[in-house]
C-alpha cells in the first residue's frame, strides 16, 4: 500500500503548529497504525529529520496512551479499538490519512500528536480510589457481590483513560471518563463508604478542566472500550444526591 500521511507537527506546547504531508510507500496491510508511524519515523530519522512524537506504551489497547485523531475520528475508523490496535487494512491504497492531536484546553499539546492528559489525574486524585487499611489480604469471597453488579462495575473499570471521549465531544466534556471511574467504585461494596464524598469531589474537579455535557453521545462512539452513556446518567443522579448526603454526613461529625 501507498498512503499519504498528513500529520500535525508542533515543536512544543507554545510553538505554533501546522500540518506536514508525507508520502509513505511500502505500507503492509498487516501493520498496525503505530507500526506505520514507526516506519515513517525511521525514514525521517535516516533523513536527519525530527521523528513524529506520539505516545504509546502497551500497544495492546490497555494503557490508553496512544490516542490521536485519525481522519476526524478519535482512534480512527474502527469502532471499539485504540489506535494501536487499528490496522492499515482498514485503509485503501492511495488514501490520504490526516492525523491530529486531541484538542482541548485541558489536554495541551506536548509535541506533535502527544498531549498532556494529566487533568485526568487531577480527577482521579480527587477521589478515584478507596481508602483501605493495609494489612493481611482479606479472604476471597468475604464480600459477596451480585453478578450483575460485578459485571456493571467491570464494564466501567474497562476505561483506559485515553481521552478519546473528551476529544470526540463537541464540548470537550469529560463526563464519560469521570462517570466510568465513579461507577467502577460507586457500584461496589468497597466503594460505598466514600461514595458521596468521591462523587462530589470528582465531578467538581472535572468541571475545573472540562466542558459541560449536552448528551450528543459522540464519546460513546469514540470510546475504545465502548463505555456506556448509562454511567453518565448514574453520575448525574449521584452528584445531585451527593449534595444532600454530604450535608447530612457533616452533621454527624460535628
Amino acid at each position: 500500500m501507498r498512503i499519504t500521511l498528513k500529520v500535525w507537527r508542533q515543536d512544543g506546547p507554545t510553538a505554533p503548529g501546522s500540518f506536514e504531508t508525507y508520502d509513505v510507500p511500502g505500507v503492509s496491510p498487516d501493520m498496525s497504525f503505530l507500526e506505520m508511524l514507526d516506519v515513517v519515523n525511521d525514514r525521517l530519522t535516516l533523513d536527519g529529520k525530527r521523528p513524529i512524537v506520539f505516545e504509546h506504551d502497551c500497544r495492546e489497547g490497555i494503557c490508553g496512551s496512544c490516542g490521536m485523531m485519525i481522519n476526524g475520528v478519535p482512534h480512527g475508523p474502527e469502532r471499539g479499538t485504540a489506535t494501536c490496535q487499528l490496522h492499515m487494512r482498514k485503509f485503501h491504497d492511495g488514501d490520504q490519512i490526516v492525523v491530529e492531536p486531541w484538542r482541548s484546553a485541558a489536554f495541551p499539546v506536548i509535541r506533535d500528536v502527544a498531549v498532556d492528559r494529566s487533568a485526568f489525574d487531577r480527577i482521579i486524585e480527587a477521589g478515584g480510589y478507596i481508602s483501605t487499611p493495609t494489612g493481611a489480604a482479606p479472604d476471597a469471597n468475604l464480600t459477596l457481590i451480585p453478578k450483575p453488579v460485578a459485571d456493571a462495575a467491570m464494564d466501567a473499570a474497562a476505561c483506559i483513560g485515553c481521552g478519546a471521549c473528551v476529544a470526540a465531544c463537541p464540548n470537550s466534556a469529560a463526563q464519560l471518563f469521570t462517570s466510568a471511574k465513579l461507577a467502577h467504585l460507586n457500584l461496589l461494596p468497597q466503594g460505598q463508604a466514600e461514595r458521596w464524598a468521591r462523587t462530589e469531589a470528582m465531578v467538581e474537579t472535572m468541571e475545573e478542566f472540562f466542558g459541560s455535557c449536552t448528551n450528543h453521545g459522540e464519546c460513546r462512539e469514540a470510546c475504545p472500550k465502548e463505555i456506556s452513556l448509562d454511567f453518565i446518567a448514574m453520575m448525574n443522579r449521584d452528584y445531585v444526591k451527593s449534595k444532600r448526603k454530604n450535608r447530612k454526613l457533616l452533621s454527624q461529625i460535628r
Partner: peptide, 23 residues
C-alpha cells in the same frame, strides 16, 4: 464554559457519528 474548554478547534474536518442535527 464549553467554548472556553476548546479554544483551538480541530484543524482538520471532524467526522461526527452520533451528534445529530437536533443536538
Amino acid at each position: 464554559i464549553n467554548r472556553r474548554s476548546r479554544p483551538l478547534a480541530y484543524q482538520s474536518p471532524r467526522d461526527y457519528s452520533a451528534a445529530n442535527f437536533a443536538s
